[in-house]
């Protein structure tokens, strides 16, 4: 699978670890719940660590752990649920997270410009065919009226 990161299309090296799956090698993402439960064990993991959050999760729960995380995945169940936009803003501006923030799931290709402004720097569309489209949508506007992350 491919994704957009920092405006380039690259291969996705991350692996999704379900809550009930045994640990695997490599770069893995886990749910916020699993992270909070198994933190001690996961910290010994060989490979990079990422956490998936949904709209009702709170970015504040990760505030003290951000140094251990190379990826935070915003998992959109529904493009109309805008809470993850504020979570991204909080991760960048309030908690100064500098790693990858990635949008996945049911976000809309037409939302990538706003997502990039609130600090999302990677996009993994549900359909690989949308990669090129989303790259171009990142340039929908050359001007902006207000401060955000970018």
């Amino acid at each position: 699978m491919q994704l957009i990161k920092d405006r380039h299309i690259i291969d996705d090296t991350w692996r999704y670890l379900a809550d009930d799956a045994a640990p695997i090698d490599g770069d893995i993402t886990v749910s916020l719940a699993r992270w909070l439960n198994d933190k001690a064990q996961l910290l010994g993991h060989q490979g990079k660590l990422g956490v998936r959050i949904g709209p009702s999760d709170s970015a504040a729960d990760l505030a003290d752990d951000l140094a251990h995380l190379q990826l935070i995945e915003l998992d959109f169940p529904d493009f109309a649920d805008g809470r993850l936009f504020s979570q991204a803003w909080l991760l960048r501006c309030r908690y100064h997270y500098a790693g990858e923030i990635r949008a996945t799931g049911h976000y809309m290709s037409d939302q990538v410009f706003y997502l990039s402004r609130v600090g999302v720097n990677a996009f993994k569309p549900e359909q690989a065919g949308h990669l090129a489209v989303e790259l171009s949508h990142l340039n929908d506007f050359t001007v902006q009226y207000q401060k955000s992350v970018n």
Partner: peptide, 11 residues
């Protein structure tokens, strides 16, 4: 101006 195309508050 502040509210127009506000990236965080459109949804």
């Amino acid at each position: 101006q502040w509210s127009t195309l506000h990236p965080e508050f459109d949804y």
